[in-house]
Computed example of a mutant assay.
Amino acid sequence: MARLALVTDSVCTIPQELQEEYQITIVPMSFLLEETTYVDNGSLNWLEFYALLKSARRLPTTAAPSPGAFFDAFREVYQQGSREVLCIVTSSQLTATYNAACDGARLARHELADMRIKVIDSRCAAAALGFVVLTAARAAASGVSLEEAANKAEALIPRMYMLGFLGTLEYVAKGGRVPQVAAWLSALLKMKHIFQLHDGNIIRLGAVRTNPKAMDRLLQLASQRLNRRKPLHVAVFHTRAVDAAEALANRVREEFRPAELFVSEFSQVMSIHTGPGLIGLSFYNDP
């Protein structure tokens, strides 16, 4: 393993081949579903996951990795030869993962005296987090220092956008984030609620009826935020909506001609809060 290692959490949705290419270590989150605790690493197959989620009497609870889990990850890469670690995790406004990673780093510094660790709050999630991690990993692979890789990651965060729409408000309502009556009306009217996550802030950008109209709106919003004169990186994300995600990816490819484009599925921890049918895109321009 390289001297500088990259560590992140399972919300990142980085494609498996890129995880392996850059030797990125993933620390999984977990969730409690029907009195059974599962690790967010795909060990529970998706069909079974959604069947259990649909029938659950209560919305499952999710949990950040423990400080000990991060310590174990730091110790593992140390044993493989890395003496520097850049750990980039999901926004601290969404989860306690950042605090757990900081606590794990303190434990590692105490026991592994010659190890240097920097933890970054990405202020984003899912594929947006994945892009921040990949930017740092690519910098690390080129031989830069820990500080230089961290600077590249931190410089990307304000340029990183995440836009999406929910296929249903059912699971958001189960979590108490919207009233049940709002979810019922939304389902009745087939409304698709559009949101943005940017630099740590989540805002609602309205609602439209039907998936095609929602996709049109996503592309319009993306066009307002990107720079067509600079290289563009895009990840289309979804929850159990492969065909719709591939259709959106094709439109992105035709309309924006990105330098990089991939499709990824939300982790199960994230899917608990959104349910199936979520579709969106994360993107940024090179400086």
Rank of each mutant, 00 (worst) to 15 (best):
I194Y: 00
W184E: 14
G200E: 04
L232F: 00
L163I: 07
A149K: 08
P158C: 01
A150F: 01
G176H: 06
F165N: 03
T210G: 11
V144F: 03
Q180D: 13
T168Q: 04
L146M: 03
R257M: 13
P158D: 05
G167K: 07
Y161W: 09
F237P: 05
L221S: 04
M215R: 13
P158V: 00
A259E: 11
L189G: 02
A155L: 09
L218D: 05
L205Y: 02
L219V: 03
W184M: 15
Q224K: 14
E147L: 04
M162K: 14
A155M: 10
G206D: 01
L232S: 01
A153C: 06
K152R: 14
M215Q: 15
L163T: 01
L156D: 01
T168C: 04
E260C: 11
A182K: 10
E147R: 10
R229M: 14
K190L: 13
E147C: 05
G164I: 00
A187T: 13
Q196I: 14
G200V: 00
A241N: 07
L166Y: 14
Y161L: 04
L185H: 04
A247N: 12
N201V: 15
A222C: 11
V144L: 06
P231Q: 01
G167Q: 09
Y161E: 08
G206L: 03
T210V: 10
V236D: 00
P212K: 08
Y171A: 05
Q180A: 13
A259K: 15
L197W: 06
L166C: 05
L197N: 05
V234L: 07
R217L: 02
R159W: 01
F237Y: 12
Y161G: 00
E255K: 10
V144D: 09
A207I: 08
K192N: 07
V252E: 04
L232D: 02
V181L: 14
M191N: 11
N227F: 05
S145I: 03
M160C: 00
L221V: 05
R204V: 13
R225M: 09
G164R: 03
I157G: 01
S223W: 13
K213C: 10
R209S: 04
V172C: 07
N227E: 10
L189W: 11
G200M: 05
M215T: 09
L205S: 05
E254P: 09
A245Q: 06
